[in-house]
Simulated assay, not measured.
Amino acid sequence: MKGRPAGGIAVAAALVTGLVAAVPGVAQAYASSATGTINTSGVALNVRSGPSTSWDSWRTVADGATVTLLCQTSGDSVTGTYGTTTMWDFLSNGGMVSDAYVYTGSDGQIVNSCVYVGAEPSSKTNPRSTNGAINWAFQRYRSTSYENLCLAFVAQAYGWGGSGWNTAEIGGDWEAGHGYLNTSGIPPRGALVWYHNSSGTGHVAISLGEGKVIGTSVSGAVGVAGYLDHGSYRGWSVAYFPAAW
């Protein structure tokens, strides 16, 4: 047990819409979001790019702050205020924190599991993993160096020198023409998220999951946005760069 007050469990249960009793062979349903309180006994908590203490710390959240959890995933084991856990919480700002420092009223999972994109074809495996690519992107948070280079940004995030396509419009066309473009559902974590734009060159970003993306051209720099905040949304695909170098 993490030492959370037992009375808080009832509060958490009230917040979790559709929570069902644990029955062998039956999956539990969790809430799509929930609130929690950061408890670090005074210091600010690092918000990281992924579920690991080795990933980039791109901002902090104050002790005592209320946060919104959108999903939970497993990662590095961390010992904190509420004991030791491998659970990490994805926050509404697009980052992750260890659940060991978040009071939710429960020692267990309370929101849906984070959904990751499927693997790219083995014929062209990316040099960098999903969380590795997102970490690379967050290391360039607020950088203006990639403006008008969105396609290079996502390709380099996944470890390539370049995508092999001249524009994101061409890349999106290729994904669509080869059956990789999905037009329904929220883009899963790690997916390439494709857009049309007024110039005809298109745009692409990387999904963080839960409706968030990281990419260029967010107030003129690399940043986090909603996946529908850019212009004309086309859909999402697995992170596949067939012509990358």
Rank of each mutant, 00 (worst) to 15 (best):
M1S: 12
G3L: 06
G3P: 13
P5A: 02
G7T: 05
A12N: 09
L15S: 13
T17Q: 13
L19T: 01
A21K: 04
A22Q: 10
P24C: 05
G25M: 08
G25S: 13
A27P: 12
A27Q: 08
A27T: 01
Y30A: 09
A34Y: 01
G36C: 02
I38V: 14
T40P: 12
S41D: 09
A44L: 03
A44Y: 00
A44K: 02
N46Y: 01
P51D: 04
S54I: 06
D56H: 15
W58M: 12
T60A: 05
V61E: 06
A62S: 14
A62C: 10
D63K: 14
D63A: 08
V67H: 02
T73A: 14
D76H: 06
S77R: 10
V78A: 09
V78Y: 08
G80W: 03
G80D: 05
T81Q: 15
T84W: 11
T85L: 12
T85M: 13
T86V: 11
F90S: 11
L91Q: 05
L91V: 04
L91M: 11
N93W: 01
G95V: 01
V97G: 11
V97L: 04
S98A: 04
Y103H: 03
T104V: 08
G105I: 02
S106W: 06
Q109D: 05
I110H: 11
V111E: 06
N112G: 03
S113R: 10
S113I: 00
Y116A: 08
A119P: 08
E120M: 11
P121K: 07
S122W: 04
P127N: 05
R128I: 15
T130D: 09
N131A: 03
N131C: 08
N135S: 14
A137T: 06
A137G: 08
Q139I: 02
R140K: 13
R140L: 10
S145H: 10
Y146F: 15
E147A: 12
A152F: 06
Q156D: 02
S163F: 03
T167Q: 00
E169T: 05
I170G: 01
I170Q: 00
E175C: 14
E175M: 15
E175F: 10
G177N: 15
G177W: 13
G177A: 15
H178N: 15
G179C: 05
S184C: 06
P187L: 10
G190C: 06
A191C: 11
V193E: 01
H196Q: 14
S198V: 12
S199F: 00
H203S: 09
V204E: 00
A205I: 12
S207N: 02
S207H: 03
L208Q: 07
G209A: 10
G209N: 04
G211A: 13
I214A: 04
G215Q: 03
G215N: 03
S217H: 11
V218Q: 14
V218R: 08
A221D: 08
A221M: 08
G223D: 04
V224D: 02
G226M: 03
S232C: 06
S232V: 13
G235Y: 01
V238M: 14
Y240S: 12
A243I: 01
A244I: 02
W245Q: 15
W245M: 13
W245R: 15
